[in-house]
Amino acid sequence: MPSFDVVSEVDQHELANAVDQANREIDTRYDFKGAEAQVEQAGDEGGLQLEAQSEFQIEQMMDILLKKIAKRGIDVRCIERGKLTETGRRATLLVEVKQGIDTDTAKRMVKSVKDSKLKVQAAIQGDKLRVTGKNRDDLQQVMALLRAGDWGRPLQFENLRD
Rank of each mutant, 00 (worst) to 15 (best):
F32M: 02
D75N: 04
M61Q: 03
R29M: 03
Y30W: 05
I26K: 00
E51N: 10
T28S: 06
G73W: 04
A35E: 14
V113W: 11
V39Y: 05
N17Q: 04
V97I: 13
E51I: 06
K98E: 14
E25G: 00
A144I: 06
S116T: 05
R77G: 07
R24K: 09
E51H: 06
L94Q: 13
K33R: 13
V95K: 02
E59C: 00
L66M: 10
A42V: 05
D137G: 03
L84E: 08
E45G: 11
A52L: 05
D11A: 11
R29A: 05
Q21M: 05
A52I: 02
M61G: 01
L50Q: 03
K111S: 15
I69T: 01
M143L: 07
E9I: 01
G126W: 09
L65K: 02
T87Q: 11
I58R: 00
K128V: 03
C78P: 01
E59L: 05
A122K: 04
S54V: 01
V7F: 04
R81P: 00
T132I: 07
G43P: 12
D127W: 03
K111T: 14
K68W: 00
N23R: 06
A122N: 10
S8T: 06
C78G: 13
V113S: 14
I26A: 00
R77V: 02
Q141R: 08
D104Q: 11
G133E: 07
G88V: 03
V95E: 07
S116N: 14
V97A: 10
D115V: 01
R90E: 15
R72Y: 02
L50F: 04
K83R: 13
K107L: 07
A123S: 15
D102F: 05
R136P: 07
G46T: 06
L146N: 14
V131E: 12
A18C: 03
L48E: 01
K98M: 08
T28M: 02
E86T: 15
R89E: 13
K33P: 04
V7L: 12
Q121E: 15
L129M: 06
N17S: 09
M143Q: 15
I69S: 00
F56W: 05
A106G: 15
G73K: 01
I124E: 13
L129F: 08
D138W: 06
D44I: 02
S112R: 13
D104K: 11
R130D: 14
L94C: 03
